[in-house]
Measured scan of single mutants.
Amino acid sequence: RRRVRAILPYTKVPDTDEISFLKGDMFIVHNELEDGWMWVTNLRTDEQGLIVEDLVEEVGR
């Protein structure tokens, strides 16, 4: 599965499916959606939700 790492921290918008995360958090990407959004699991918190791909970088497989 594709893995990405947060290059900046992010605080979710209330009442959305987004998740908050810290710089350096690692994610497993489950689905890539329209407009640059991805459905992921945060490996640090085990939380699932939406993040925007502009805030992450690819991690070598």
Score class of each variant (00 low, 15 high):
1 R>E: 15
1 R>N: 15
1 R>M: 15
1 R>P: 06
2 R>D: 08
2 R>T: 09
2 R>W: 06
2 R>S: 08
2 R>E: 14
2 R>A: 05
3 R>V: 10
3 R>C: 07
3 R>I: 11
4 V>Q: 02
4 V>L: 11
4 V>M: 11
5 R>V: 13
5 R>K: 15
5 R>T: 07
5 R>Q: 13
6 A>T: 02
6 A>V: 01
6 A>L: 01
7 I>K: 15
7 I>A: 04
7 I>V: 10
8 L>Q: 11
8 L>E: 11
8 L>R: 11
8 L>A: 15
9 P>E: 10
9 P>L: 03
9 P>F: 03
9 P>D: 15
10 Y>T: 00
10 Y>P: 04
10 Y>G: 02
10 Y>K: 05
10 Y>S: 04
10 Y>I: 04
10 Y>C: 04
11 T>A: 12
11 T>R: 09
11 T>E: 09
11 T>G: 05
11 T>I: 11
12 K>E: 07
12 K>N: 06
12 K>M: 08
12 K>H: 08
13 V>W: 09
13 V>M: 13
13 V>T: 15
13 V>L: 11
14 P>K: 13
14 P>V: 10
14 P>F: 06
14 P>C: 09
14 P>T: 10
15 D>N: 13
15 D>K: 08
15 D>M: 07
15 D>H: 12
15 D>P: 02
16 T>Q: 00
16 T>G: 05
16 T>S: 12
16 T>P: 01
16 T>A: 03
16 T>N: 04
17 D>A: 12
17 D>W: 09
17 D>G: 10
18 E>Q: 15
18 E>R: 06
18 E>I: 06
18 E>S: 04
18 E>K: 05
19 I>R: 02
19 I>L: 13
20 S>C: 06
20 S>Q: 02
20 S>T: 08
20 S>F: 01
20 S>R: 03
21 F>E: 02
21 F>H: 02
21 F>N: 02
21 F>I: 04
21 F>M: 04
21 F>L: 03
21 F>P: 01
21 F>T: 01
21 F>C: 10
22 L>M: 11
22 L>C: 09
22 L>Y: 10
22 L>W: 10
23 K>S: 10
23 K>N: 07
23 K>H: 06
23 K>R: 10
23 K>M: 09
24 G>V: 03
24 G>K: 00
24 G>N: 09
24 G>M: 04
24 G>H: 08
24 G>C: 03
25 D>I: 00
25 D>Q: 03
25 D>H: 01
25 D>W: 00
25 D>P: 04
25 D>F: 02
25 D>N: 00
26 M>C: 12
26 M>K: 06
26 M>A: 08
26 M>R: 08
26 M>T: 13
26 M>S: 09
27 F>G: 02
27 F>Q: 02
27 F>C: 05
27 F>D: 03
27 F>V: 01
28 I>N: 10
28 I>E: 15
28 I>V: 13
28 I>S: 10
28 I>A: 11
28 I>W: 09
28 I>C: 11
28 I>T: 13
29 V>A: 04
29 V>L: 05
29 V>H: 01
29 V>N: 02
29 V>M: 04
30 H>T: 07
30 H>W: 09
30 H>D: 09
31 N>R: 15
31 N>D: 15
31 N>W: 12
31 N>L: 08
32 E>C: 11
32 E>G: 06
32 E>N: 11
33 L>R: 15
33 L>E: 09
33 L>V: 12
33 L>F: 12
33 L>H: 12
34 E>K: 13
34 E>S: 13
34 E>M: 08
34 E>V: 10
35 D>V: 05
35 D>G: 14
35 D>R: 12
35 D>H: 12
36 G>N: 09
36 G>H: 08
36 G>L: 04
36 G>F: 00
36 G>E: 04
37 W>Q: 15
37 W>H: 15
37 W>K: 15
37 W>S: 14
37 W>R: 15
38 M>S: 05
38 M>R: 05
39 W>D: 07
39 W>P: 03
39 W>T: 07
39 W>E: 14
39 W>K: 09
39 W>L: 11
39 W>Y: 13
40 V>Q: 00
40 V>S: 02
40 V>T: 04
42 N>R: 03
42 N>L: 06
43 L>H: 04
43 L>T: 12
43 L>Q: 14
43 L>S: 08
43 L>V: 12
43 L>A: 07
43 L>G: 04
43 L>R: 05
44 R>L: 01
44 R>A: 06
44 R>I: 03
44 R>H: 04
44 R>Y: 04
45 T>C: 03
45 T>G: 02
45 T>K: 00
45 T>M: 00
45 T>E: 00
45 T>I: 02
45 T>V: 03
46 D>F: 11
46 D>L: 10
46 D>K: 15
47 E>F: 02
47 E>I: 04
47 E>N: 05
47 E>Q: 09
47 E>D: 10
48 Q>Y: 10
48 Q>F: 09
48 Q>W: 06
48 Q>R: 11
48 Q>A: 11
48 Q>M: 10
48 Q>N: 09
48 Q>H: 12
48 Q>T: 14
49 G>D: 02
49 G>N: 02
49 G>R: 00
49 G>Y: 01
50 L>P: 05
50 L>N: 02
50 L>H: 05
50 L>W: 11
50 L>G: 04
51 I>N: 03
51 I>V: 14
51 I>H: 02
51 I>T: 03
51 I>S: 03
51 I>E: 01
51 I>K: 00
52 V>C: 14
52 V>I: 14
52 V>G: 15
52 V>W: 12
52 V>P: 15
53 E>P: 12
53 E>K: 14
53 E>S: 14
53 E>R: 13
53 E>Y: 09
53 E>D: 12
53 E>I: 11
54 D>M: 07
54 D>L: 06
55 L>E: 03
56 V>F: 00
56 V>Q: 02
56 V>P: 03
57 E>N: 05
57 E>S: 07
57 E>H: 07
58 E>Y: 06
58 E>F: 06
58 E>D: 13
58 E>G: 09
58 E>C: 09
59 V>Q: 11
59 V>H: 09
59 V>L: 11
59 V>A: 13
60 G>R: 09
60 G>I: 06
60 G>M: 06
60 G>P: 13
60 G>Y: 11
60 G>Q: 06
60 G>E: 14
60 G>N: 13
60 G>W: 07
60 G>L: 07
60 G>V: 12
61 R>G: 15
61 R>M: 12
61 R>S: 14
61 R>H: 14
61 R>P: 15
61 R>E: 15
61 R>A: 15
61 R>Y: 10
